[in-house]
Amino acid sequence: MPLVQVLPNTASTAAPGYTYVVDTGFDPSKAAFNPKDRKRVSHRPGGRRGENELSARQQGVIARRIADLNRDNDPKQVIAIPSNAKSIPAKTQNTRRILAYQRQIKHWLDEEDAMLQQAAQAPTNRPAAGHTLRRQSTFSRGTTMPPTPAEMTPVPTAAPEPTSSSVRLTADSKTEQLLSVDDILPPPLNQAELEALLAAPPLSYAASHAAAPTPDGPPQRRFCDNCGYWGKIKCLKCGARVCGLECKNAHEATRCLKWA
């Protein structure tokens, strides 16, 4: 039975974006019992959309659902603050402005992303060049591939220092014993390397998210849209999964077109 798998696209938006590729047959219940006996995902990046791929509209539905599940406040709901005689008055213009903001988090994250993008495009417009450049490198993590360990670990500029000045970990005796037995003690930490690591600026919020699963990992598990059991049957109208005829009928009576 064909299965669709969701893969991330490379667009750099704060909200997750999605592209979909066709997967060949896969029974999630079998894979769960035999995790090693899984079939490889065959995927076609680009090209015409196959019959099992989700439409842009379906991708949008999934993204909106996740955003809904992750929402903190309902913008339709207005709850006034009860008046309080002892309330501290805002004396400065700054504080009056800040207290008046009714923006949601999305505004601030989008603004931060826009600022980083601007800084990346114009790296020499400020005297605090180091600051801007670091921001640029921060941003690049969000737009390109997940970093390799080599990218994330600054290469020490100084020559390796003698062992006496390198940092030793106070690992407990168990660690030392095991490490020495196996003779695989990691190389000692170089002081310059450590300082560079500790001085690295924060990632942007968008760039801090964990990577998407790799395509060679287990495919996304699919569940019945109605009851949550394994989704073995695909609804031909909308592509959602159901477990059997009974749930298919319930699905068609309730949520079917929601996912179309």
């Binding site: 930490l189 964990a210 699963p213």
Partner: peptide
């Protein structure tokens, strides 16, 4: 449909950004 690895793999992703000693 959230395009992120699970918590154990995310922990490894964080650790793999560190030098082996750390």
């Amino acid at each position: 449909g959230i395009q992120e690895v699970g918590l154990p793999k995310a922990i490894m992703e964080s650790l793999n950004a560190l030098p082996p000693m750390l």
